[in-house]
């Protein structure tokens, strides 16, 4: 069953087919284990590339539309790679009443991305989550496992700037190192 968009993209070539096969073999090619398989694939690649859906569909004898439906149904699955920094904005009750929405909006405006999206340079992903479990710090943003407490839109913009700088200097350091 060739997938609809079986064009040979670079993405397709870079898929780790051997490892995908291992995942499928681990679940004995059972289509019923599709969610577990998808979780493993996401663990492996970091997200679920569309081409991997086509590949799995063929191996598991289910239609790619069915797997796509499952991937889009569960919030845990991502169809696009997550950025270098995943900005998790908590929108749980405590954060919500303390203005989490304005944080989300600030990130959206600053980076021109909506929830679940990644900036074109692959630097930032905006993720809206329900509760991260530190309500006393509300509203809170979690980046790289670090919680930023009592945030305001202005602080968010500053944080984004800092993160970008950090990445740039890290990149320059890397280049300098290579040049040496």
């Amino acid at each position: 069953m060739a997938a609809g968009c079986a064009c040979q993209t670079t993405e397709e070539k870079s898929l780790p087919y051997a490892q995908l096969d291992e995942v499928i073999a681990k679940y004995r090619g059972e289509a019923a284990a599709i969610i577990a398989i998808l979780q493993d694939v996401q663990e492996l690649i970091g997200y679920i590339p569309k081409q991997s859906i086509a590949y799995m569909a063929e191996k598991l004898h289910v239609s790619p539309a069915k797997i796509y439906g499952i991937v889009t149904f569960y919030a845990q699955f991502r169809l696009a790679p997550v950025g270098r920094f995943n900005l998790m904005v908590c929108e749980g009750t405590a954060c919500h009443v303390n203005g989490a929405k304005s944080l989300t909006r600030a990130i959206s405006d600053e980076l021109n991305i909506a929830g679940g999206e990644t900036t074109e340079d692959g630097m930032f992903t905006l993720e809206r989550v329900a509760c991260v479990g530190c309500c006393s710090l509300a509203p809170v943003i979690v980046v790289d496992g670090e919680a930023y407490a009592n945030m305001t839109p202005a602080q968010v913009r500053r944080l984004i700037g800092q993160l970008r700088e950090k990445e740039q200097s890290a990149g320059e350091a890397q280049i300098a190192k290579e040049e040496l």
Binding site: G4, C5, I53, A57, S63, P64, A65, Y68, G69, T72
Partner: peptide, 12 residues
């Protein structure tokens, strides 16, 4: 929807 939300004519 189709796989990848493609238009029908690009699907099977």
């Amino acid at each position: 929807a189709t796989f990848g939300d493609f238009p029908l004519e690009k699907s099977e």
